[in-house]
Design a protein around this nucleic acid. Structure first.
Lengths: 323, 323
DNA sequence: TTGAAAGCGCTAACAA
DNA sequence: TTGTTAGCGCTTTCAA
């Protein structure tokens, strides 16, 4: 029997190209010998590596792991493995990581580390590398994106606070280099048309200390603020700290809404009202989009953008003002 | 110029095997053409894939991501990429995942999903596949291991409670299928030599509900218990819930100590006293151990075991009894 | 439906 | 120090 015939027999994608009897014999022999086709040799021949690069900004950020799980699950089922790379939120490392992943002939890239100016990533679009962005977008808008509908989440948060009776609502943003911050800020501002600009301060990172510093600044002016929409949950916890330092209580004096619904924010004191995003589904959808792109071969014009619904989880950090 | 010469010129590991002038010319040409050697072809020839499989039980478990970061960082620096696979705490999936990783010719495996009986993994030892276990061990003890010194952590916890004046201390374990549970339980029992067996109940998973159920059972008997050493932080939070349901307060009525120091357990109410483990360093050390194993070629007899120090973080969930 | 032959891009061994 | 040759294990023409 010839190797070529065996190869054909073992290829499930070939319908009647080979006799059923032969297929059986080949399979039996393969089982008996414990034969596993060498993926390297196959790759060399077929020009397909069988894996996808997954670039994350920081695996330690609680938003990321469920997304990666969603990606991994879908890709794995499709027979693709995940090469994981962490950029540690560093642009140079992102560039290095993407270069390495490309040189390793990844079939595609899923990138969760995008920053708005995204040099490295724009180049991927230009060179038509199969790429899908998750959560974080580039301003150029030249790459496919799967993200949560943050704007709707922020609108829901503002509406919730307004319904509780809040009139002076502030926003503590995350870092301005991220599209998530921009989207949330824009949605926040649009929720107050004409009514005089609401207070906005910027946190320089998605961390508790950064949130605390920004919120402290906000509270110094005070300005009648009775509620804060935070850029994310860490920022919200920073707000808690700043409120405590200022001798204010949450939610009695100031209500706080977070974003993401990360693990345990329902266990802190007070349990945090927050905008939940469908993290796992973001991963699943991003992987599916990449798979579709790989099957089609070339990029679509314009790149698809999918926004998944968010959900406001009301807990105890929001209450009527003066309550 | 011949391709073989070019290949040699581009290989940094070859000292004076090629003329400096030639090296320069080759490099210039390579740069000009944007030449990148094909890793697939190289792999086929050298029989080295350039990546390592990283098997995790559940990326969503907060203990895992920092470990993976440590692994990824070290491996990446060494020129190896990480193929990530999640078993979802499922033995069948672990078997499938390991098989797939092996068939993809990973140079080695780092496994964080081991269970004590670990069929699949014992086979790796038998077949001399380069493998390092992190955190979770198999009973057979036939594979290299990097883990935290949980026993010391539990001893520190018990000592801390004893010094506060607690005499009736209980243990709520995690799932018995895990070596971490066994190690912590053994250390706990050894801390009470002769003094009559202290109360022990078993949580069937490292989750808040499982911890709550187990702790509720414990509290039904009550039995004068004034302190609980929990199998991990999630179990500890389950204890919080059970205490609250039973109308008891922590730490006034019952003190609680967790294990792992996961994110935000310092923010819950009361802030959790817990045994911190060096997660990132576990990853770093596991990766280093694998690298050493790969360089040596064959397995050591007996397999190395490294325990990294833990640290008791005292917060507000522990206080003197009747306090 | 199967066999034969070629070649993916690289590097290791050997020869010059 | 460089050139030659061969072959890693597979799949894909093309021919039978």
């Amino acid at each position: 029997m010839h190797p070529a015939t065996a190869s054909r027999a073992l290829d499930p994608a070939l319908p009647g190209r080979v006799a059923a009897e032969t297929v059986r014999r080949v399979r039996d022999a393969a089982d008996a010998l414990g034969y596993r086709p060498d993926p390297t040799a196959r790759s060399l021949r077929t020009r397909r590596s069988g894996f996808v690069g997954v670039v994350v900004p920081d695996l330690t950020n609680p938003v990321i792991p469920p997304i990666v799980r969603g990606i991994e699950e879908v890709l794995w089922t499709a027979g693709l493995a995940c090469l994981l790379a962490d950029t540690d939120n560093d642009l140079e490392r992102e560039a290095a990581v993407v270069a390495e992943l490309r040189s390793r002939r990844c079939e595609g890239l899923i990138v969760a580390s995008a920053t708005r100016s995204g040099e490295t990533l724009e180049e991927l679009a230009r060179e038509d590398v199969a790429t899908v962005l998750v959560t974080r977008d580039i301003d150029a808008g030249t790459l496919p994106l799967v993200a949560a509908d943050d704007a709707a989440g922020v609108r829901a948060a503002v509406t919730h606070l307004a319904e509780l009776g809040h009139e002076r609502i502030a926003h503590v943003t995350g870092p301005l280099s991220l599209s998530t911050t921009a989207r949330r800020l824009a949605a926040f501002l649009e929720a107050f048309p004409g009514a005089g600009r609401p207070p906005v301060v910027h946190g320089e990172a998605f961390t508790i200390p950064a949130g605390e510093r920004a919120a402290a600044e906000l509270l110094r002016a005070r300005d009648g603020v009775t509620a804060i929409v935070a850029g994310n949950d860490m920022i919200a916890l920073g707000c808690y700290a700043a409120l405590e330092a200022a001798g204010l209580r949450c939610p009695r004096d100031v209500s706080v809404v977070g974003h993401n619904d990360m693990p345990l924010v329902g266990q802190v004191q007070p349990p945090l009202t927050t905008v939940a995003i469908p993290q796992y589904e973001l991963g699943v959808e991003a992987a599916r989009m990449l798979l579709a792109r790989l099957r089609r071969g070339d990029g679509e014009q314009p790149p698809p953008r999918v926004l998944l619904p968010t959900r406001l989880v009301v807990r105890a950090s929001t209450a009527p003002p003066d309550g």
